[in-house]
Nucleic acid binder design. Structure first.
Lengths: 104, 104
DNA sequence: GAATCGCATAAGTCTGTGCTTATGTGTTTC
DNA sequence: GAAACACATAAGCACAGACTTATGCGATTC
């Protein structure tokens, strides 16, 4: 189940930080490490987990590997969340406004 | 961070199953165990984790404890997801339709 | 073509966590 | 009020996973 890799990937705070950093723009693994006190292998392993969860994707450029957010993973979370629409609170208005935003 | 408890709670497949079951309607812990091959203490511990993540909430009734989906947890996931709206794919239409659904 | 660089992989260690059995606590039943 | 019930908590165990150091591998630099 794809669902599983996604939630498992996001369960780790370090991986959430990495994902958040990538959301600000594509970056290679070394750049991601800046100000993060994490070893190079650790970063590589975290990126592998995020990649397998389809939360990020890679683009090889020479000896660099640029990573960026993969919309597929986010879409799968949205799908999962949608299953429980019956329980969404009224103040889901934020999400509603958000989608209106995308229309413009 | 609330975010952490939520993703950690959902990282476990058994807990996701429990949550899914509760989404079908409120139920006490014993009813939840039906057809799940899980010990009573294990269920109790899983429910505690889900409760701390605000994904479910309890309602004590006599010697029974009924559990139900807590919209707060779902709202927090929606909020987290909303942070990455810039990366949502075009085919997020499902979500869009969903919200239209709620309007009726 | 040797050295360096960016990254991945291997192997081992240590902590977190999901399970178990055992027991405790409050509620209902008889 | 004793027994049965629904559930929580405690303690211990076994495995998953996040880290480390060491090494490998392709691309670039000189």
């Amino acid at each position: 189940m794809m669902e599983h890799e996604i939630f498992r990937a996001l369960a780790d705070p370090t991986r959430r930080s990495i994902f958040e950093k990538l959301a600000a723009g594509r970056m290679n693994a070394s750049a991601l490490r800046q100000g993060m006190e994490i070893s190079q292998p650790a970063m590589s392993q975290h990126l592998a987990v995020l990649r397998e969860a389809r939360l990020v994707r890679e683009q090889k450029e020479g000896r660099f590997v640029n990573y960026e957010v993969d919309p597929d993973g986010l879409a799968l979370i949205a799908q999962w969340l949608a299953k429980y629409r019956a329980y969404w609170p009224a103040r889901i208005d934020a999400l509603r406004l958000l989608l209106k935003d995308m229309d413009q």
